[in-house]
Nucleic acid binder design. Structure first.
Lengths: 215, 215, 215, 215
DNA sequence: AATGAATGAGTTTTCATTCAT
DNA sequence: TATGAATGAAAACTCATTCAT
């Protein structure tokens, strides 16, 4: 009865891929909640419902697990970007779609932000050492360049805009809102985490950038 | 010779205010470098050159020390804001000065950003519990409202801009650049931490916002 | 050779039950010697010859370890009581046996007394929270009631003796002698810890109670 | 105006005797509540409302303060004993009065018991080193001897009773009840700390000893 | 592949005690 | 006499990691 183990009664036994995925999911939550230093390997294993040793077995150590999570969330963003299909759109529609997608991704994955915090504090230590991430070029800066050029030619956009900085601006206008919601809410005495506040922010961001690009 | 005590011979003996300041300075560095969870009380005391127990004597515990640092950096920003004196300026000059000051403050105090990271991750736990911070209202949102109104009246600015969100945008355009310099540099394969890159960013941010405000 | 593991070569490897027992033994000694507050977890681990972390792994914390020791010594007493078999004896023999057993148990386990000191000081904090101890009813008060009733009927004992208080008296007459031997010896200038002193005390206690029960 | 300091406005300044007394009172409470190891010098100073350094100034160290408390409570007992005036009473009245006084003292000063716990655990380390305590002989053992002899002569008491052990028994019958009230209450599931329980105990103890002394 | 036992180096915090005024 | 600052040693407890099965 060699297959007895994989019956419904004990469905999780001996499924390495599933175990690794469970660990990644748990690690993502724990790192997002507590940061790299604050995260607990014990807690990750417990959340994943597997033995702690498997963290070391599959990932090596805590840092490597953190990197694996980073690679995962970056891959998620890249996938979104690949699906945008901005190429065929008129310039203003393309930029608008990009801004909205950028905002919506952060709204949907707020943990992305806090996962990057420790990484930036440490000078991108993990990211710079990752072959996988090095291979994940974002097509967007090139895309933004093209869209800007097209828009200028069509008279939709003004000249003199640096595409890298525009990309950073688009990201930053949403990023800062999500990353600092708690302190901003406390300081302004106003709840910025509500759905209404998010809608208002989205509208503002789209509006600000689009207006800035006018000739 | 009543001032004998403060001669160079024994400069640090019996000076509680100086001891607390040294601890705050050391804590600010350590928290900025390693985050709340990653910071080591031992290291803070060592950096300050004082006995570790004094952290507990003067501040209570690690969290209270962290809050004291947060209060300090917020007070620093508020002081800068008070010195801006935007009231007398024409609307466009006022906004430009605000954007530049915002950028320059982060450029001068990059630790402010990383100090806020853990605070935001934990839902502004410390900030919300602080009486001192509650009393430190920023005058800027009101100021931005007035400037916008003036600018609209004068025909310098367009209508329909939410002052709170404009303030967040001004902050965010600089903040994200500084907070994510390491990962952005790694991803773009381009060093954004250079003086030239900062100058370019500053120019872009000012330009973007000013253009967006045009009628 | 399934028993190979327990050969002399590597006798202590991978034997969690033995590890816990070693910790309990060490803790019992340390708590008896130094009290709850005075006991050192480091010292307990060292005495047990195991890693300190295992205290936390197996017992949770110092207090829980202390409770485990209390449960152990109570269980020891209850086991002794179960073995007494007073039921079949004539009333005077039964009471005499009970007094002697009570004295002998304390003589054999003087640590029982000092282990209870901190517990009583703190209002039986641990004992009251223990399910195990709640389940360990002593059969002796009921037994003493029956014996007294029988003795009264047989004319061996006088009436009007409260069985609970008699039980407390039997315990107390021995307990106080053992618990306060050092100060009593110092105050009386007479060594009460000698074997002779114990014999004399035992005789006195038996005699006192038996005489007090005469009709 | 040399006496200005001692006006009502600042009544406590420069009153060494009062300061020492306050420290002793505070120490007695703290040692009774937490034991020698568990007591905190900080807490004692805080309870006394004086500076911590004064503990060291007046008493030397924590152990010496503990000894001072022990000397105090012993002196209290000796004072009670001196006031008993058993000499003129008939033997049975004398013994009864002794038992009752013994019980009543513990009822009034339950901290005496717990103060002695640590002392006994450590082998009466402090008591044996104290000249003061060495000088405080209790007159009671001699007194009990005389009373017993008188009682035997008068036919009130039986022969063969060791006066030292009788004294220990009288003390122990009350002591154990008070020292172990919390655990006994928990084990018996019956509150022994009530006034009614104490009355019942007192009666039982007097009765038990008096009956035991009958010829 | 998976588990629970075990470890050593740390981490925050506490505490008795001494110093300087 | 009295105070608050300062200290060093140690306390309970934690944690990433490795071992044995």
């Amino acid at each position: 009865m060699p297959q007895q183990r994989s019956t419904a009664a004990e469905p999780r036994r001996r499924d390495p891929a599933a175990t690794q995925k469970k660990l990644l999911v748990a690690a993502r939550r724990e790192f997002a909640q507590s940061g790299l230093a604050g995260a607990r390997v014990d807690e990750i294993a417990a959340r994943a419902g597997v033995n702690k040793q498997l963290v070391y077995h599959y990932f090596g150590d805590k840092d490597a697990l953190y990197l694996a999570v980073l690679e995962w969330v970056y891959e998620e963003i890249r996938a979104k970007e690949r699906e945008l299909n901005l190429a065929g759109l008129p310039p203003d529609k393309a930029i608008k779609k990009l801004i909205e997608a950028s905002f919506d991704h952060l709204a949907a994955h707020p943990d992305f932000i806090v996962l990057l915090n420790d990484e930036n504090r440490s000078g991108a230590r993990h990211v710079r050492g990752s072959r996988k991430l090095a291979a994940m070029h974002s097509p967007l800066v090139d895309m933004v360049s093209k869209i800007l050029a097209e828009g200028i030619k069509a008279g939709t956009f003004r000249k003199g805009i640096n595409p890298v900085h525009l990309y950073i601006s688009i990201a930053g206008l949403s990023y800062f809102f999500f990353s600092n919601t708690p302190t901003l809410s406390a300081i302004f005495g106003k709840d910025l985490s509500s759905a209404a506040a998010k809608r208002a922010r989205r509208k503002h961001v789209v509006d600000l950038v689009m207006q800035a690009l006018r000739p």
